[in-house]
Design a binder for these strands. Structure first.
Lengths: 161, 161
DNA sequence: ATAATTAGTTATCTTGGGTAACTAATTTAC
DNA sequence: GTAAATTAGTTACCCAAGATAACTAATTAT
């Protein structure tokens, strides 16, 4: 009887009381694929992809950026940035503004790029609002802070290793 | 003077009061790449990748699964599942248990697979705990619910389109 | 019994990460 | 002031993990 109860108890624990941190990242992964998928669908209407959009977003909010700046911010390698920026340049959304340091390639939105960003922004705003339905702004703000903290924890791990 | 104040005000709004839903998904993207990167680093110690780990996780928590079940749950296409499951089979972590319906391929962990899962679990638990440092369990639980809601909003969008 | 559906596979494409090795420009050290 | 070290960016190439299209085999529905 005791043995059976122990077994039941164990089963109960395993199935229903998964640890919060496990469940947290499980849900994070379960959300990130579909989110990226849908985001790319929306962006596809404007012939864009997530990686390109991330760069447009950064530059739209910071006026200009160098490739290294983008790489550091997004925590990706320089060659990845080079490739994506090149595509955006080819599409006529970004242009190179020369600065003092002739090594660096500082990019800004072209007039066309600004126009496109604003257009896409409308689509994406709509999309993001829709999928945040029923989530109070207060919780959204708490979520933002949480993600920032986790990101910082990740980054400090990098440096200490 | 009025014009200048307006300009300042506008600038202030744009730079410091980005809408919550924009910032939410911006942070989500900023977190998901580094998270996957670090997760893969940890998994690499055991010669695993994120996609494989997701499948091991699901089967470890559900005893067995068919490929279609995995595809539906993770919202990915069947060929993607086939490939990843095949790798896990080759590594000797999964085995096919025949059922009534001879079309479906129901998979379960092998003894070796169970052992490996438990080993990796320790590494990943440690990793996940570390990067959730300074986040109260209460907030983690709120985050879990938020991600579930967003995921459901995404899925219901799919169906209505 | 035939038609439609379902589970899984194979072939092939694509995005977007990564590393290694390089050039050109700038800074630092001597 | 020059040589060495560092930094920004590029090129070539690799790979994981998603996707679609077209297929077979098994099962269900008509």
């Amino acid at each position: 009887m005791v043995t059976l109860d122990n077994k039941r108890h164990q089963h109960y624990k395993e199935v229903f009381f998964i640890k919060a941190f496990q469940e947290f990242f499980h849900q994070f992964l379960l959300l990130s694929r579909p989110f990226e998928h849908h985001l790319n669908n929306e962006l596809g209407k404007h012939r864009l992809y997530r990686a390109q959009w991330s760069i447009l977003y950064y530059i739209a909010n910071n006026d200009s950026a160098t490739l290294v700046e983008l790489a550091h911010y997004q925590r990706i390698e320089k060659p990845t940035v080079t490739r994506t920026v090149t595509r955006l340049e080819e599409q006529g959304y970004l242009e190179h503004i020369p600065g003092k340091d002739r090594r660096e390639k500082r990019m800004q939105l072209t007039t066309h790029g600004k126009k496109v960003y604003e257009d896409v922004r409308v689509t994406i705003d709509q999309f993001e609002k829709e999928i945040l339905a029923h989530i109070p702004e207060e919780d959204q703000l708490a979520g933002i802070e949480m993600m920032k903290t986790i990101r910082m924890n990740l980054i400090s791990r990098e440096n200490s290793k």
